[in-house]
Computed example of a mutant assay.
Amino acid sequence: MDVSVPASRRTLLQVAAAGVAGGALAAVPLPASAHSGGDRRHRRSAARCALPGTLAVTAPNLYPEGVTWDPTRKAFLVGSSTQGTISVVRADGSVTPLVAPFAQVSVLGLTVDARRGRVVAAYTDYFGRMLGIVDPSLPPVSGVGVFDLTTGAVRHLADASGGADLPRANDVAVDERHGDIYLTDTGADTVTRVSRDGKVLGVFSDPRFETADTGPNGIVHHPAGFLLMAKYDGGRLFRIDHPRSSRPVVREVRLDRHPTSLDGIALRPDGSLVAAANDLSLSGGRQGRDHVVVLRSTDHWRSARTVQDRTWSVEDPTTVAVTPYGDYVLSGGLREVLTGVPSATPGQFHLRRR
């Protein structure tokens, strides 16, 4: 990713930071007209499932990269790449704060651990550092945040920078049985294991994770005890066995075809995997396409085939939240943060049902 810093990018983050300093995020109701109803059949279906097909959410300067479903609220939680917050997004499109800014960081991937009453998130100051907002003489900040699901209070902040020059904590997964947390780092090309009480237990990598582009990205914990991890560059998928041991075993999942990239991923109740693909971080002038793919395996994720590959009409999808009402794909306007070029719908982000 190009780390040169146009003034427009610096201004964007400075405005966002000023907004945080000026007060809490206000609840912004979504006008009824902004709910994309589509045809009559689509509207009836949306009414039955309690969520509209698309939420076009007005929230200037939020720019979420990560989203998860909160079953306790029956609502979405989103991070902010500019404000270092976590917010609740309800079915009516309203946005209310849950986690206040706890550092000058971006909150990226996140997940709800309802069993333990917590929300777990990846945080990093990489964007602020890239855009010249963070003092480069300070050590980088990157790690896992654990917050109370009800109040948003900080429970643990686990530093996972590990001495890397430009660490980029990206996504998190939770082992539901043991409570361990797994964090991907797209800059250091690593996966970090963090205990349920916020202690770093180990870091592991593999030569196949390494890239000069964007590396380990989306991650999920499979009920069978292994991890599935997406590598952004090249659209690769890995199965990681024995992740709680000192020597996890890494195998690349054989795919029938590779997406443009693999960004955020989510495991569906039927055992399939849904993934977002974009060209936000493709370097060297390479271009891809925005699409959402569904992968299915019949051999415990030693291999997988593509059962759906759908071009996505809302630009730059980054990840997916699986809900009881369908899979919702997030397009958070991240390109505007990275390039300074306004999105097609400034001040809005979109959650659209697949």
Rank of each mutant, 00 (worst) to 15 (best):
D2N: 15
V5M: 11
S8C: 08
T11S: 15
Q14N: 10
G19H: 01
G23F: 00
P31A: 07
S33E: 05
A34Y: 09
R41V: 15
H42L: 12
R44H: 14
S45Y: 11
A46F: 00
G53H: 08
A59G: 02
P64A: 13
W69D: 00
F76A: 03
S80P: 00
T85H: 07
V88E: 02
V88N: 02
T96W: 04
L98K: 10
V99R: 05
A100L: 13
V112S: 03
R115H: 10
V120F: 06
A122V: 11
Y126G: 10
P139M: 06
G143R: 12
V144C: 06
T151I: 05
V154D: 03
R155S: 08
D159S: 11
S161T: 12
G163V: 07
D165N: 09
N170Y: 10
N170S: 06
N170L: 12
E176F: 07
H178T: 15
G179C: 13
D180F: 15
Y182N: 05
L183N: 04
T186W: 09
G187A: 03
G187R: 00
R193C: 02
D197S: 14
G198L: 10
K199C: 11
R208E: 08
F209D: 01
E210P: 07
A212F: 14
N217K: 12
I219R: 01
A224L: 09
L227V: 01
L228D: 00
L228K: 05
A230C: 04
A230V: 02
L237I: 02
D241T: 05
S246R: 14
V250D: 00
R251V: 03
R251E: 10
S261R: 04
R268C: 01
P269N: 01
A275M: 00
A277N: 13
D279Q: 00
S281F: 15
G285D: 02
Q287F: 06
H291D: 04
R296K: 15
T298N: 15
R302P: 03
A304E: 00
Q308V: 13
Q308T: 08
V314P: 04
P317A: 13
T323W: 01
P324M: 05
G326A: 11
D327Q: 14
V329A: 08
V329Q: 07
L334T: 08
L338A: 14
G340S: 08
V341K: 09
P342K: 03
S343T: 13
G347C: 12
G347H: 09
R353C: 14
